[in-house]
Amino acid sequence: MMGIVDKIKEIDGTKVTVQRENRIFVDVEKERVIGTLYSMKLIGFSQLSVLSVIDRIADNQFEIFYVLYNRDEKVNATVRVWIDRDNPVIETAEKIYPSAHAWEREIAEMFGVKVEGNEEAGKPFILENWNDLPPMRKDFDSIKYSSEHFVFRHSEDKNE
């Protein structure tokens, strides 16, 4: 009988790393993401648990990862793709995993990733009146923003 790891290895263009039992990483090229996700769904990864981004600022890349779960085999698999940080565009996965819709809106707002095919990605989601860098990027200076927009409480009024 064929194991789940072998089934993933059969998908074209995937580089599979088995970190430990039930924890599999699947690295793919940008062009193959949607096809890989579709194949993963066919072999039983029915749930998209998390879709998020890691800001690899040293490499000037974004790492987009899709954490998938296979309920029958009880296996987590993470599909990872690295994209250019200066022009971050991905294709939507909401046709395959409908729950990707909200995750994609979130990464569009928090990291500035453009999601093609998702009509609502890029519209205001959590933040209101935001007109600065997307706040989860590593080059966003939270303390600077905070001190420009809000007033800190200082302890000098203690003496009054």
């Binding site: 706040p135 966003f140 905070s146 007033v151």
Partner: peptide, 19 residues
């Protein structure tokens, strides 16, 4: 609510309620 607490450097949290 008093001074931002552990979120003092957050981009979203206001620091002083009484303002």
């Amino acid at each position: 609510a008093l001074n931002g607490g552990v979120y003092w450097d957050s981009y979203a949290v206001i620091k002083q309620l009484d303002r």
